[in-house]
């Protein structure tokens, strides 16, 4: 069973996805903020991350992605966001190694099956 760390400030979004991810064989650890995700990482080492962009700040998820990537360079990161295009962020939105070291970008609302498929693929690509 693969362990997912799911950082997202909307507990309902986590709850909805958790239900389906569990039927697909994932164990979900929830974190309501980037800070909480950092605390969880002291206790667990997940196989894959799902990160929201806007949490404590409007780009908290990006910073978390960079931190996580430098600590676990081989663990895939899936990023979810509700406002992909229209945000004035100080860098490109496309994944790249330095600024945005993530595996896949998904735009909310995300179909839970699609999320599970994305996790499956990311983990496969990683083996």
């Amino acid at each position: 069973m693969a362990n997912v760390l799911f950082a997202e400030d909307d507990a309902d979004v986590i709850e909805a996805h958790r239900t389906l991810l569990e039927t697909r064989g994932y164990e979900v650890t929830a974190a309501g903020s980037a800070e909480e995700a950092r605390k969880q990482l002291e206790k667990i080492s997940p196989d894959i991350f799902i990160l929201d962009v806007m949490m404590e700040t409007k780009s908290a998820g990006f910073q978390l992605a960079r931190d996580v990537h430098s600590k676990y360079p081989n663990t895939p990161i899936v990023m979810m966001t509700g406002v992909r295009q229209k945000m004035d962020l100080p860098y490109g939105f496309e994944p790249d190694e330095t600024w945005l070291p993530i595996t896949t970008f998904l735009e909310k609302p995300v179909d839970p099956d699609r999320l599970a498929d994305t996790l499956d693929n990311a983990l496969k690509g990683n083996q």
Binding site: V13, A16, T19, L20, M54, K58, M87, K108, P109, P112
Partner: peptide, 27 residues
């Protein structure tokens, strides 16, 4: 406006997620 967009989209994502769970009879 950008915070408003985020605040409006959050409940949509949540409700969408729950409806998907029900549609798929996940429980």
């Amino acid at each position: 406006t950008s915070v408003l967009a985020h605040e409006m989209k959050s409940p949509i994502s949540a409700i969408d997620g729950y409806l998907q769970v029900m549609k798929k009879r996940a429980k």
